[in-house]
């Protein structure tokens, strides 16, 4: 995979979520995604960060999260990768709760799957978990090959 257009390391602090949302919205907009799609990306990344901070790092504010972003073309879109060093989680556990079971929590994974076009969780061999999500512009020319574009 090509070098990401953006690679950042943040601390696992909830107060950093708003600036990360804003930054990803701006990148998505520059990549050609519309306002609703930018909102979907922001919410999905917010949910992923919440899961890492709350469940992965048990609210430890000084752990690390790495965010990498690629602009895509054919079709136009954004790929975002989030890495952490939290304990491994069995992939079958990373699913939404039954939506008819009304209770607080357990909606994050459902929202991510509902809002993004591709979602892939994996265990990092070096430790920690990886989430890679992609969002494509709905009106973009849907060619089969996804290329990584240059952000200018």
């Amino acid at each position: 995979m090509n070098e990401p257009h953006l690679h950042a390391r943040i601390l696992s602090r909830p107060e950093l979520m708003a600036p990360i949302r804003a930054m990803l919205c701006e990148l998505a907009s520059r990549a050609g995604l519309d306002e609703a799609e930018c909102g979907h990306i922001a919410l999905s990344i917010d949910e992923a960060l919440t899961n890492i901070i709350r469940h992965g790092y048990k609210n430890d504010p000084d752990s690390h999260i790495w965010i990498s972003v690629w602009e895509l073309e054919n079709p136009t879109g954004l790929r975002i990768q989030m890495d952490d060093l939290a304990p491994h989680v069995e992939l079958e556990q990373l699913k939404s709760r039954d939506l008819d079971d009304i209770r607080p929590g357990g909606l994050g994974v459902h929202l991510i799957h509902s809002l993004m076009d591709t979602v892939h969780f994996s265990k990092r061999p070096e430790g920690g978990m990886r989430l890679v999500v992609e969002k494509f512009h709905a009106l973009a020319n849907a060619n089969t090959d996804v290329k990584v574009n240059n952000i200018s």
Partner: peptide
Amino acid sequence: PYMDSSGLATLIEALQ
């Protein structure tokens, strides 16, 4: 203008 699942969870708690 914006709410995530943490906000939803808070509302669900109150609803219960």
